[in-house]
Nucleic acid binder design. Structure first.
Length: 155
DNA sequence: GCCAACGTTGGC
DNA sequence: GCCAACGTTGGC
């Protein structure tokens, strides 16, 4: 089992939106970064743990827990000319952008803000979120990092 | 294949 | 709203 952190802007799609979806599940569309895509395409497995992270908002941080709910499949928005994620260069016979479905599990008891997480940078070791200038929207965590953050939640 | 210009992310 | 970081694009 692998562990992930996935960012979303709550103004566009927050954890409340995920919770209100049918089956509390949503295709994680719109990822247009190769590194993030590769994580979904090559490494994610159904049942993997996901920290749901709110970015670009008043208090950025981890707000809940979700899980990977599908195998990887082509992101349909890349072929939709009306979508803001439309990519005319993507070949339907060899889709460029891949996604997985994400399913809500639970809210955190409290938000683990980025500021608080940064205070634990030493304990978290080499965690992409606390590295300067990181813009990756999907990143892996080790089991140790995952458990450390869960313990932080109840501390 | 280099790299300047440009666009985007996302914290602050 | 600013701007640092950094990915992408396109001219050469």
């Amino acid at each position: 089992m692998n562990y992930w952190l996935m960012k979303s802007e709550p103004d566009a799609f927050g954890i409340e939106d995920l919770k209100s979806r049918p089956e509390q599940t949503e295709p994680w569309d719109g990822v247009r970064n190769y590194q993030a895509r590769n994580f979904m395409r090559d490494a994610m497995k159904v049942g993997d743990g996901v920290f749901f992270y709110h970015s670009n908002c008043k208090v950025p941080g981890i707000v809940g827990i979700a899980e990977v709910a599908s195998k990887p499949y082509p992101d349909p928005t890349q072929f939709d000319p009306d979508s803001k994620y439309y990519d005319p260069k993507s070949d339907p016979d060899d889709p460029r952008w891949i996604l997985v479905d994400v399913k809500f599990k639970r809210d955190l008891d409290r938000v683990l803000s980025l500021a608080e997480i940064k205070e634990h940078a030493d304990a978290l070791g080499d965690f992409a979120l606390v590295r300067k200038g990181n813009r990756l929207s999907i990143m892996p965590l080790t089991e140790q990092q995952w458990n450390y953050l869960l313990e932080l939640e109840t501390s």
